[in-house]
Design a protein around this nucleic acid. Sequence first.
DNA 1: TTGTAGGCGTTATCAG
DNA 2: CTGATAACGCCTACAA
Lengths: 332, 332
Amino acid sequence: MSTERITIDDVAEALNISKTTVSRAISGKGRISNATRAKVMEYIDLHNYRPSSLAQGLAKKRTFNIAVVWPKEYSIVDLPFFQRCLIGIDEITSANDNDIIVCMMKNNDIHQLERLITNNKIDGVILTRTLIEDKACEYLNEKGLPFVAIGNTIDNSIITVDNDHFKACRELTMILLQKGFESIALIGGDENHVITTIRYEGYSAAFRDFGKKMDTSLTYFNISTLEQVSDIVKELYEKKTDCIICMDDSICGNVINACKEQNINIPSDLKIASFYDSAVLENVNPSITSLRFDDRALGRRAAQTLLDMIDKKEVNPRTLSNYQVVLQQSTQ
Amino acid sequence: MSTERITIDDVAEALNISKTTVSRAISGKGRISNATRAKVMEYIDLHNYRPSSLAQGLAKKRTFNIAVVWPKEYSIVDLPFFQRCLIGIDEITSANDNDIIVCMMKNNDIHQLERLITNNKIDGVILTRTLIEDKACEYLNEKGLPFVAIGNTIDNSIITVDNDHFKACRELTMILLQKGFESIALIGGDENHVITTIRYEGYSAAFRDFGKKMDTSLTYFNISTLEQVSDIVKELYEKKTDCIICMDDSICGNVINACKEQNINIPSDLKIASFYDSAVLENVNPSITSLRFDDRALGRRAAQTLLDMIDKKEVNPRTLSNYQVVLQQSTQ
DNA sequence: TTGTAGGCGTTATCAG
DNA sequence: CTGATAACGCCTACAA
């Protein structure tokens, strides 16, 4: 029972008016009498007519689609972040009759993004992660297509929406320093990710502000596997380190497991904190001191910013979302 | 440096031929001399012209977009399944110059899907989960829009792509019975999900085939929280149950935790198996006997089926993907 | 083998 | 306030 699609001509004919008038009634542009507008609205409502976005797009040179770039190699711990961002993005786009096209991206291979753009299928792009040398950014800049990046970038010309990781990491580190912990280690991920750099800067800033010299022998980068973490934990425990800060919850999970293996008690033997918690740490025992961000809000802001850019409105080039420091048992 | 988009007219003019010819050269339809085709191809390649999918769509009444329905309330354990499916789908769609629009769906609220369809933004839909009473299916059937569901459905008129859960669950259960386990319990999830029913049927079929009466006092449904699972494990352990089959890895993870809490050793005190493993169980100790499915392949098949349907080709209404039974320590 | 002309469903321009 | 008419970029009979 596939009812044939109804067009603007049908509406115009049925109402004995021109399609120009119908178009005006719907778009709200141009002068039109309230009477005819009401008539049109009633009719299209009743017959449930909706303009074809294809035709609209052709005429207005807009697709009403935005691309969201999805890193193909997202690990299981990153997925919830992405999911929540996407839900936030969707809340805004769907409310504005726009839709989301997913664009898979593996590492720095922008093949798919190029296809999307040369095929003229999108009006703008949201990047959900940025690399130090980001080809997607370069390409988009070159093409002049509106885009916003979730996550900080080094390049200041890029419109960005992010959690205020710097401030958050600085604050958490500062709290730990003020608690009197003498030696605080830091275990971080891929140095090629901007986020890693930002977090490190927050960490260092706290030391600077506190007036304490950082012991760089206690900072580790490019760590991901349980094996690597195990070795580090062992080393740090022997050094009698007070506290380990993990840059994300994936690392933190591994630290917790390593402690279990080595019969190290948290927090009596060793304090633990995490600069990030996607959900993995939620039900862990003991509860873990960590930073909490609102990813959905992040998505919403990114989407709103992008739509504004597409509409040629002025936007804030550097939107920062708020955070909470959640102090738990692991640092008591 | 946003180079202005080039159109088919530009190409035609530059080459001093009509745009019909250009169109033919690109689409491959209609007779055309090899010489002119080559000339056209070279030019468009050099100037990197691509037909506007908007205009193409308007003319051919196709958007070259498909929707993938994304359940908003996906839990963290389901995400990897979805992710892998999506990657599989993308492999096929992108190879065919189609794109994926995500359509968020909360429970049975098809609001977004309706918008997508009335706005004429998609050619077909992939459903990534089916409910017993599925409004999306009903709506799509009514609209006559091509769609395929990943996951079994009760309604046989629906085109479906799925892992062969029935056969897989029957086989795993059968193996356990043949191992001589006397009492085998089953802990399952939401009874309102078709998948739950299918798994249960596989389980029962094994008992029937084996010629053993099922003890329905050992089957539990609608279980999700750790508290629920803990109580059940306690109860079953007191009853000296041999083996617990979990319908999915989320439940299985909880069973493992419950066993740890209650100092129940796997497998010496109790055997454990799971009808599904999304990734959560991957590094668990002891390793868990479970069913393994290829979700990417599933996505690929779903996408190929849908594209065939859109092209009005004949399709297999019931595609079943293969599985592996992976026997591990937990049932030794 | 190639070209002409009309149509796909809207919006925008310019007269009434 | 309303209506022709021409884009928008491509496809496809129908002609040549």
